[in-house]
Design a protein around this nucleic acid. Structure first.
Length: 265
DNA sequence: CGGCCATCCTGCACGC
DNA sequence: TGCGTGCAGGATGGCC
């Protein structure tokens, strides 16, 4: 499923291909996927002035307003047409098109006049300049919450998903059920470093999972092979060879090593 | 406030 | 072989 690094990769692809395009027409085979008061009125005739990422959202800026896209688990934005799973089609004056493809149909495209306001509830960007080790420590201090769901909470920190939270907790030696406020400062620092380095490495690898932007369909990022615990339940830990444990935490599949990750409570 | 649950969807991995 | 079942999951909203 697309997480922050995948979204970043998609955004970079879009910046090279759709900026300057003007929307001529749209088709919406799956109506729920496009949220707008009056889609035709608000979108047709608008030109794309920029594309950026905020957390796991793709913001396609128009000369007035913006399209804010969330891919959720299986969404894709691609210039390549295919018969199946297309939920929204944007046709441009140039003759090019952009297809929103989404097998599970959880993804959404929203037209809004004020994207900034729409995304105002999100926490800091983990790769942004304001997110410092000191800020992270202050954010966690006094939070009597379980660390894993807290890291997945987009209003707390914006952009981490299930895969990278499991990886970051493993890399920093913190058990997923630990209480945030009980994690010592030195561990918080290593969690901070883990989040930054894992996201950066994954962006370098163009993400972990299925991507399809400019390289054709079903193209995968190469970070998959770097995963230490995610999807490795029952397999030996790469550090200590104990079997990786898989449990549920906050309804999410959660992978960790009992030998390498300490529970703070 | 924090945790838990259901909801939305489909593909796929199971077991019989 | 083929069918049925259960699971996966990001964000939201309701409930206790």
């Amino acid at each position: 499923m697309p997480e922050l690094p995948e979204v970043e990769t998609v955004v970079r692809g879009l910046q090279n291909t759709i900026i300057g395009e003007t929307i001529l027409d749209l088709e919406v085979p799956w109506e729920k996927a496009l949220i707008a008061d009056d889609p035709y009125e608000s979108m047709v005739g608008k030109s794309i002035t920029g594309v950026r990422r905020r957390a796991k959202y793709i913001v396609i800026e128009l000369d007035r307003g913006a399209l804010v896209v969330h891919l959720r688990m299986t969404g894709k934005l691609t210039p390549l047409f295919s018969e199946k799973h297309v939920t929204v089609m944007l046709h441009f004056e140039s003759g090019n098109s952009l297809y929103f493809k989404d097998t599970r149909k959880f993804g959404r495209m929203v037209y809004t006049e004020d994207p900034h306001d729409m995304l105002a509830h999100l926490g800091p960007e983990p790769l942004g300049e304001v997110f410092t080790p000191n800020l992270f420590y202050k954010m966690l201090r006094g939070k009597n919450r379980i660390i894993k769901p807290l890291l997945l909470d987009q209003t707390f920190l914006a952009g981490l998903g299930n895969i990278y939270v499991d990886e970051a907790l493993f890399q920093s030696g913190i058990q997923p059920l630990s209480i945030a406020s009980a994690i010592p400062r030195i561990r918080v620092k290593s969690l901070y470093s883990a989040i930054k380095s894992i996201l950066s490495a994954s962006i370098q690898a163009q993400g972990t999972t299925v991507l399809n932007f400019s390289h054709g369909d079903n193209q995968s990022g190469t970070y998959q092979g770097a995963l230490q615990v995610y999807g490795r339940g029952g397999e030996p830990c790469l550090q200590c060879e104990q079997p990786i444990v898989k449990i549920k935490v906050g309804q999410r599949g959660t992978h960790y090593c009992e030998g390498c990750q300490k529970k703070y409570s």
